[in-house]
């Protein structure tokens, strides 16, 4: 890459414009709310597991895939039927109110499957048509539907090249990039190392409250976070420091040694296992069993 080409990436940072395009769709919002209520109540429940997992996949697809709801690749009709069956099996095991919500979600998916609604796609095409299509890209998060989306956009008279999120890293400077779905689902580099003069995030309106702001995503070192860190800089003694909790690493080490002694007595000798050395914050080291992938150190 030449120096002038490299410079153009820096120059772009000055003139880039980020825009969030909110799309309104009352029917899908109702489904989202109904499923959201079920998810909050039963996400830990085993009997709801299959239903929640299946419905969640469908909603993920609908949230960021600019394809019409009757598109065969989305398989909304089949998903609706499966969810209806699953809700039937739950009928006598769950609260009637929850069953009604599950039923509502399943039926709503089936209704969407016979319509041909593509609100996300239409908004994306409107934006893309405002520029030279050769200098635009549509960014999708997952490669799964990339070819279907590209074909659909071509059929609709918008022959844009569709790329997957990670391809943005190596992209040359474009005039316009359109991304579908919430900002927070994209890698931060999409926003903080921009590759187009106009960057649009097209998402459903009800997701905005759960989304991050584009301005936050556009910085690697968030100023507020850095400021908060400076305020609590540990090396500077400040008034009231004694109130802050401190970690007694020496104590933790002694406790670990005691426990090891008790364990040795219990098992009647040394138990040899493969171990990996981990460094503790106070400069001490601790050997933990290499076979365990999740470590839980009790601080006593």
């Amino acid at each position: 890459m030449s120096l002038s080409h490299t410079d153009s990436f820096y120059q772009l940072s000055e003139r880039v414009a980020f825009m969030v395009e909110d799309v309104y769709w009352a029917d899908l919002k109702k489904i989202d709310r109904a499923f959201g209520a079920l998810f909050r109540r039963h996400r830990e429940s085993e009997i709801w597991n299959d239903f929640i997992r299946r419905a969640r996949w469908v909603l993920w697809d609908l949230t960021d895939t600019p394809l019409p709801t009757d598109h065969p690749r989305l398989g909304l009709a089949k998903a609706g039927e499966e969810l209806q069956q699953l809700s039937e099996t739950l009928r006598h095991q769950v609260d009637p109110e929850d069953y009604a919500l599950a039923w509502q979600v399943a039926i709503a998916f089936q209704h969407l499957a016979v319509e041909s609604l593509d609100l996300l796609g239409e908004r994306c095409r409107d934006l893309l048509r405002e520029s030279d299509i050769q200098r635009c890209r549509l960014v999708v998060r997952r490669p799964r539907y990339r070819e279907d989306i590209e074909k659909r956009f071509r059929e609709e008279g918008c022959p844009v090249q569709v790329i997957v999120e990670h391809q943005v890293r190596t992209l040359d400077i474009m005039e316009r990039l359109v991304m579908t779905g919430p900002v927070k689902l994209y890698g931060q580099y999409v926003f903080n190392a921009p590759r187009a003069e106009k960057m649009h995030a097209v998402r459903y309106e009800w997701l905005s409250t759960r989304d991050v702001s584009v301005n936050d995503a556009a910085r690697l070192f968030p100023p507020l976070e850095a400021e908060a860190i400076r305020r609590f800089r540990v090396s500077q003694p400040r008034a009231g420091d004694y109130l802050a909790p401190t970690i007694d690493w020496q104590g933790i080490r002694w406790q670990a040694e005691d426990r090891a002694g008790i364990e040795k007595e219990r098992t009647g000798g040394d138990l040899e296992v493969d171990a990996r050395l981990h460094l503790l914050g106070g400069g001490y080291g601790v050997y933990l069993n290499v076979e365990r992938t999740v470590y839980n150190i009790e601080l006593g």
Binding site: F221, E225, A226, I229, R230, F232, R233, V234, S235, Q236
Partner: peptide
């Protein structure tokens, strides 16, 4: 980097 900043002396 932010962790280094937290344990640094001053800006």
């Amino acid at each position: 980097i932010l962790s280094g900043l937290a344990s640094s002396l001053e800006d």
